[in-house]
Amino acid sequence: MNTKNFLYISLFTALFATSCKKDDAPAYDSNVKADLSVEFDNVVGAADLALNTGSYTNAAGESFTVTKLKYYVSNFVLTRTDGTVYTVPQKDCYFLVDESDENTHEPLLSIPEGEYKTISFLVGVDSLRSTMDLSQRTGNLDPAGVASDMYWTWNSGYIFFKMEGTSPASTMMGEYMYHIGGFGGMTSSTINNIKKVTLDLTARGVPQVKSGKSTNIHLMVDVLKMFNGSSNVSIAANPMVMFDPYSTTIANNYSAMFRHDHTEN
């Protein structure tokens, strides 16, 4: 190879390498945090949930209304398309979705820029936080504040999921109440209804999280699945379920009520 050719080849290689590098240059800076909102859109089957006014029918053939729907989501973890995992700092990561308060429907997370393929979260409050000193349970977990309606005082612990309404099938003055909790017990082992939900985001739109943008993951939360699941829940048979062995059936059912509908990048 003569000198001239060598120079050409070197120059070409260098340019090519540079251009390649330029194409691979990260569009995302994982050192920069950006907003990602996760919308919990409560629905009943194919219909939007209308508190108090909407009437629906479950698999047991019982018609019902929903007068109250609240649940905790916490401990969000997101996995990038390259497989790396980001765990949202736990203390910023407890949200109470309350159907009657629109401001609670879209928890806002601050996560590193990037493209993400899965999201996972807990429905409920982890056992560690459930037993922490009261000074570590502020904001959405304050039993004198947001959590006052979602806390069992006689059997220390958070209520993870609360759904109430009316139904002619109920033998309890036409009402039903499901208050589901149980973190596994502090002084004795007992029921654990903490549910981990993991959703694939690739089929319905990978979120491209970038500073300056406001990416939104839109989840549909079908509360009909609380009734209709691997074991159908009947209002006539169980109009009221609180801290009770049967609560595990309800928790298993509602853990399947979340699905990714679309992403707004």
């Binding site: 037993t131 009261l134 006052s148 806390y151 005082t153």
Partner: peptide, 28 residues
């Protein structure tokens, strides 16, 4: 033994219907 932390204990009588029948929010 339903309550495992002394700090959480008073919430039970304060909110119990037959004891003080209030809410922590109101008391505070």
């Amino acid at each position: 033994g339903g309550i495992f932390d002394l700090d959480l204990q008073p919430v039970a009588p304060i909110t119990n219907h037959v004891e003080m029948d209030d809410t922590l929010v109101n008391v505070l």
